[in-house]
Nucleic acid binder design. Structure first.
Lengths: 343, 343
DNA sequence: CTGAAAGCGCTTACAG
DNA sequence: CTGAAAGCGCTTACAG
């Protein structure tokens, strides 16, 4: 690739016999420049195929018009949807997105965050990885004066802007739905409890039991069952109990629920009549399994939009004493075949 | 958010009573600086919580260490996987990714590309949108001396680096598989023919017919059936023909194949015995429909890795006379329930 | 309305 | 091994 000399504002100024100041002003559509010359400058810029050097502009202005995003995995439905949502609304405002994946690894997450601080991004949007145990790197973001927005998986103790799902309420509704459907022994597949979202989903599960005055059975709660494989493994254990469950709430994800369904199918257990199944996240496949899986929709693209809008709102905000905002999005229970039994 | 004054190399230099030059050298691990002072500088930088301003550094060096990616949609399995792959390998080399979505819209695509040129990215990776009819904006990238890499959906006439799938071969194998399975009237759901990938998939379809000496039946080729809905619509038409097909190759995507399956199920047509179905792209759901859908895996994450590696290889390449490389990845036919019939 | 000048925070060729 | 100086391409307060 040969090196190309790019057109600068000086080239334009030289050609027109004026100074770079005027060119800069014209190109920024400043009002304090003659309309005629402005037109001429813009025309000439176009002819010379001029593109502003944003690096220089941002360096001078002390901003980057860039937002950094850190997620565990880009290619996971929920996250790619949130990113799509963020991109959708930031793009219109001339902001760019730098995307990093932490790969559910604490050290890589720290690395990602540092990279973004180096890049002088204006804002960092993050959903923390599953094995994050310490949030010094996030505090570091704040100390650098960079806006920090946490979403979905958040470190609650940090006072930052947050966009979250009401996981307690969603789980509560899901389990209530199961109880009302006549299921008596409802098991829970739970995720790593250091992640707030999984803790909250368990809370919602317990809340429903309390509400309906149903006793909680400890042996029906399976830890760390948050992949398809682990979900399947947990299910096998549950179904081999002397007193097996008649419903399973895979609170971690639809992937986990899919593991449940696979095992049930393999063991010849009928869903939903003998076993009810509820997942989480409304992955595209949950609609097309047989039976289709009851799940919870998190409005992920909308969540992305919300995050972006929150950022733009905060830029304008000069009141530094205000408490950081927390926006909670109410997810929606989607009832499908896996829990619809004819009583 | 309060404005924070960041530490610069001058702050470090002042504190140590040396010049910024030495600080810069030390921080860049230059060999021409005293080991002792280097250590001291690094230690001090750390104490002052110094983060290099990459904007300034890149401006000075005339590079951005940033790669722009333009895809129709971020939240589509294939694309999010490719992006994940690119990120995986570029991240290690200290490069960042700026992601844009064209939304299958030619004008937005042009906008995205211009934004990336403005950002002075070192490379633009693009998969063109379905309604792109003109490639002036891509030529523009080249004219700006920015490395251009096209992938999957490419404008063939442009001489650029390309990473593609061997669509012809993959389709050929899929259709051959159907023919060998005893299917006689094999329909094709095709995508917009202005996209090279869909043209090639049709080519592979036709090639298989020729190879096995089977006549092509025009009424079994359905145009523009590249979503689930359009796939379903096309299938309804096909199945209501006086002489309907006994297999359908949904060459556009598994979504389209899913539409076929839905219609077949709704009409009580048995898959695979009465109707064989083959999709494209190995979407996660294709494995869990019933029956599971035969499809083609494109190794999308690997494709992303390949793109990144190609870029790094080209940076080092000074031979400007060499023809731009085209890397073709051979997809793999994955045979599943929807085409496995007991003859 | 226009220009001259300084500066954003780095890097690097040149001198010593 | 270290420093002084110029420059990457912009923007903007200051003067006129």
């Amino acid at each position: 690739m040969k090196k190309v000399k790019r057109t600068t504002i000086y080239d334009i100024a030289d050609k027109l016999g004026i100074t770079a100041s005027s060119v800069s002003r014209a190109l920024n559509n400043s009002s304090q420049v003659n309309e005629k010359t402005k037109e001429l400058i813009i025309k000439t810029a176009d002819e010379l195929n001029y593109k502003r050097n944003i690096l220089a502009s941002n360096l001078r202005k002390g901003q980057s018009k860039t937002i950094g995003v850190v997620v565990p995995r880009i290619n996971q439905n929920f996250f790619s949807n949130v990113i799509a949502g963020i991109e959708e609304t930031t793009y219109q405002k001339g902001y760019n997105l730098i995307i990093c994946q932490s790969g559910e690894d604490h050290d890589k997450e720290i690395q990602c965050v540092n990279t973004l601080i180096n890049q002088h991004v204006d804002c960092i949007v993050i959903s923390v990885s599953a094995d994050s145990y310490d949030y010094q790197h996030l505090q570091n973001v704040i100390d650098h004066g960079i806006q920090l927005i946490q979403f979905d998986r958040v470190a609650e103790e940090l006072e930052t802007l947050k966009v979250i799902n009401d996981n307690v309420q969603a789980s509560f509704e899901a389990v209530s739905h199961l109880i009302e459907g006549g299921y008596k022994r409802i098991a829970l597949l739970e995720g790593p409890q250091n992640l707030n979202i999984f803790k909250q989903r368990k809370e919602g599960y317990l809340k429903a039991f309390k509400m309906y005055n149903v006793p909680v059975i400890d042996e029906l709660i399976v830890e760390n069952a948050w992949t398809k494989e682990l979900g399947a493994e947990g299910t096998r254990k549950l179904l081999s109990l002397p007193n097996p469950p008649d419903a399973i709430f895979a609170s971690t994800s639809d992937f986990s629920a899919l593991g449940v369904l696979d095992v049930a199918n393999a063991m010849g257990i009928k869903v939903p009549s003998e076993l009810g199944i509820c997942g989480y996240a409304n992955e595209s496949f949950s609609e097309i399994t047989s039976p289709s899986i009851t799940t919870i929709d998190q409005f992920s693209v909308y969540m992305g939009n919300t995050i972006a809008n929150l950022f733009f709102q905060e830029i304008g905000n000069t009141d530094t004493t205000a408490k950081p905002k927390i926006i909670s999005i109410k997810p929606e229970l989607i009832i499908r075949g896996s829990t619809k039994r004819n009583k």
